[in-house]
Amino acid sequence: MASTYKPANSPSRVLLSHHKEAIDFSLSHLWQSQLSTWITLAAIAIALSLPASLYLLLQNLKTLTDDKREVPTISLFIKQSITEQQARDRGELLQELSEIDKVIMVPKSEALEDFRNITGFAETLETLDENPLPHVLVVTPHMDLFGEPELDMTKLARKLEGYPEIDLVQMDIEWVQRLRGILRIAERAVMLISLLLGLTVLLVIGNTIKLNVESRKEEIDVAKLIGATSSYIRRPFIYSGIWYGLFGGVLSLVIVHLALYSLVPAVEELARLYGSSFQIGGLGFKMTLYILLASSLLGIIGAWIAVGRHLRSTTLP
């Protein structure tokens, strides 16, 4: 068609101006309907802050379990027939294994001394003619090498059981170990909750945009009549979705951090009572970015679905 007298607009410049227009329009639209905007943002923020704070709780519990002093140890009880020197040699050989961080030899004589010092046992020990205690090797595994600590601990224990000098292997699975196990389950639960609440955010945004589209149906039809493309019509709604997601995400971060800082004094007091240097940790830069990205993305998807439905349902070709 003859359009020679039209000024040539470069496609990228046209696109840029379309985006600018859509941004301006969507922002002013949010601003115009402040009450409903805040309600929507609050709904999104609450839905997002729940998984975010659960995640934060988990992270903090994890740092508790990451304490190096709490690394579990394995006690190896040496057979009675093995001499102290043989036990020491075995200890040195074990030290070479890559899974093992360090080995401490506790000879039976030393163990007996320790026992004597525990009140109540001294007399009992006097009645025995010979030291009934075995030599013990206390093995500290290399936690860094471990993917699934629990699994690898049992594997290592089984390997250690195979040495001829060793009578009994006892793992000191402490509360840390158990907590780790629980945390792994909790992590999955948080993931599931995040997924469900993410879906909620998607629905909230999708529905808000849908209402938005419906209230501007006339405008959309007119825009189509005068030659607007589908993407031109879709764009301001997509931006609205981004704003809902992004601002809702920011609001949820504010909520999470307010809650967090209200907890800090209490936690510090508790940690002091237990003589721990534990400090509550925030979400961190990466997680913050991740939450904002995810919420914006949910906004885009929600808006896309809402507008897409309308664009398809319209009667115009």
């Binding site: 607009n9 101006s17 006339e218 007119v222 825009a223 005068i226 607007a228």
Partner: peptide
């Protein structure tokens, strides 16, 4: 006429130009 109620006369007329991405 199919005019948009929530836009003034100027903005109604500007619509096709905005769609074309004019400055």
């Amino acid at each position: 006429h199919h005019l948009l109620k929530d836009r003034n006369v100027f903005d109604n007329i500007a619509l096709p130009l905005k769609i074309e991405g004019m400055r």
